[in-house]
């Protein structure tokens, strides 16, 4: 792999006219979005609204039926894109390689692309694991970890790539509230420190309003609103308000 890239910091993502159907039922309906370099962009919405499908399209894991996705002006399907831009994704399940240890998982990108000597990789792995509160866990296997710990290892693995675009699929699901706050702070601090562009898919309203520069709200495959947290809160769209203000009331039960 060539040493990435001429682009030092976050990248611009442009999505236009993106549509996707599965077995004839539309999941994404002509989505248009522009995500600015260095921005933390949160995509919220109820389950089944198409958030994770959109995320997979943005990182090029799935191809759209119609529309384009450009990263720094280059289509995400381009073979040369990954030589220019470092992308990483934190999957909802963690998606750790079960046959590798935690340390090998975190250092996988650096090892496979032979970007650093082994001692340097070991140091980076230890540093990234410490960042997510898992210092000394290098030799453990993913099967020995809880769901939350796997998620944190996945975040450490993404950080080791030093990406310019980092996508998070439900980064705080399966985490306790304290760790959810820690991860939220980490997303924020990474974005500020490295200037990378972050796209976060989440149901977690506290996380979204705590870290987002802008929030997009999805419903049934369409974008209902895009704006700053304050603009989103002030939206008059009833579906947006219903999603933002949903509360369990004991007297209703």
């Amino acid at each position: 792999m060539k040493s990435p890239s001429a682009i030092p910091e976050g990248v611009r993502v442009e999505v236009s006219g993106l549509s996707k159907s599965f077995n004839g039922s539309p999941v994404l309906k002509s989505i248009d979005l522009e995500i600015h370099p260095g921005e933390i962009f949160v995509i919220m919405g109820p389950s089944g609204s198409g958030k994770s499908v959109l995320l997979k399209q943005i990182i090029g894991l799935d191809s759209p039926d119609a529309g384009t996705i450009l990263i720094e002006g280059e289509p995400v399907t381009s073979r040369t894109l990954l030589n220019r831009v470092r992308l990483a994704m934190v999957f909802q399940s963690g998606a750790l390689l079960n046959s590798l240890t935690v340390g090998e998982n975190v250092g996988l990108f650096l090892t496979e692309h032979r970007l650093k000597p082994k001692a340097e990789i070991d140091r980076i792995v230890a540093e990234k694991l410490a960042l997510v509160g898992l210092q000394g866990m290098e030799s453990r296997l993913p099967v020995d970890l809880s769901g939350g710990m796997k998620k944190r290892v996945a975040i450490a693995r993404a950080l080791a790539i030093e990406p310019q675009l980092l996508l998070y699929d439900e980064p705080t699901s399966e985490l306790d509230p304290v760790m959810a706050v820690t991860i939220g702070e980490e997303i924020l601090s990474l974005s500020q420190r490295m200037g990378l562009t972050s796209i976060v898919v989440s149901h977690d309203r506290d996380l979204a309003f705590g870290i987002a520069d802008r929030i997009a709200l999805m419903h049934e495959g369409s974008i209902l609103s895009v704006g700053t947290p304050a603009e989103t809160r002030a939206s008059r769209n009833p579906i947006v308000q219903q999603f933002l203000n949903a509360k369990l009331k004991r007297e209703n039960n």
């Binding site: 090029g60 992308l87 990483a88 994704m89 999957f91 998606a95 750790l96 079960n98 046959s99 990108f109």
Partner: peptide, 25 residues
């Protein structure tokens, strides 16, 4: 079974996002 479970549990997707070719790996 091993590659199938890696596919189902998104490990192969994770490799692709890291620009690691599943055929080579």
């Amino acid at each position: 079974a091993e590659i199938g479970s890696m596919r189902v549990y998104q490990e192969i997707d994770a490799l692709r996002t890291m620009n690691i070719d599943p055929v080579e790996y």
